[in-house]
Each structure stands twice: as structure tokens, then as C-alpha cells.
Computed example of a mutant assay.
Amino acid sequence: MRLIRIDHVSLDAADREGTLRWYGAILGLARAGTGPTDDPGEPVFLGADGAQIALFADRAPGLRHIALATDAAGFAEVRENLDRAGHAYRLEHHADHDSLYFDDPDGATIEVMIAPSG
């Protein structure tokens, strides 16, 4: 797989609004977009596209997943490798890209996504 970048890191926050304020005050990260934060299962992104922190609020605080961006060939390669190994994964179609979600041997969730163009 050709790793283009670490696209985003997703975290679960106990107090998402407070955490948003903290990341703004301490790291100077602005909220991307203006969508509502009332659905705890939907992420709120901080930072510029391609280098973001995503905050969720529907699970215990901690790391949710790390998203690795690749191209279409890399995405297909990873999916074939997972299939060949019999390793479970979940395919999701997002508004601007497709993603595979799976756990590494230590239980950390990895997202491999096709890097959106543009």
C-alpha cells in the first residue's frame, strides 16, 4: 500500500464541547465546518482537510481509530490482503471516499481510506 498520509486521528471525548474548546485554546485548531454536534456518534473535525482530529462522544474516552490515506490501488491491495488472511473488516461508503475499518493485532482500529481528490 502506498501510504499518502495519516489523514486523521479519531478520539472519543467525555465532554466533546469542552474538548473542542481545549483544542482551540491550546493547539489553535479550528472546527472544520459548522455542522451540529448534537449526534454523539457523528464526528466533529478540527483542522484542515487531510490533517485532522475527529471527536466523537458516544463511547468511553480514548483512541477510536487512526485513518491512513492511500490511492485506489493501495485500497484494493489492503482489501485483498485482508480477504486472503481471513481478517474481518467493515467497508463504509462516505460522502467523498470509501473506507475499510479493521483491528490490528493489539485491537487498535485502523481505517484505510481512498484519499479524496481535490
Rank of each mutant, 00 (worst) to 15 (best):
L100D: 03
P40Y: 02
D98P: 08
F75Y: 14
D49P: 09
G47N: 08
A32N: 15
D39R: 12
A115C: 11
P105N: 05
V44C: 01
E80Y: 04
D106L: 00
V112A: 00
P61G: 07
D98H: 10
W22S: 10
E77G: 04
I26N: 08
F45L: 12
V78R: 05
L82R: 01
A73Q: 15
H87W: 13
L20E: 11
F102M: 13
E17N: 14
G62Q: 03
D71M: 03
T19I: 13
P36Y: 05
F102H: 06
A69V: 05
E80L: 07
L91Y: 12
A25M: 14
G24N: 11
P116W: 12
Y101G: 03
H93S: 12
T70S: 07
A25D: 15
D96M: 10
I26G: 01
A95D: 14
G62L: 02
R16F: 03
T109L: 04
D83G: 04
A88L: 11
L29V: 08
V112M: 06
A108L: 15
D58L: 06
H65N: 07
T109P: 03
E80F: 00
D98N: 11
G18Q: 08
H94A: 14
V78N: 02
P61A: 08
G18Y: 14
R16G: 00
H87L: 11
A73I: 09
F75Q: 00
A60H: 07
L91H: 14
M113H: 00
A32D: 15
H65R: 03
R64N: 15
R21Q: 15
A95W: 10
A57P: 03
A25V: 09
A25Y: 10
L29D: 01
D71Q: 05
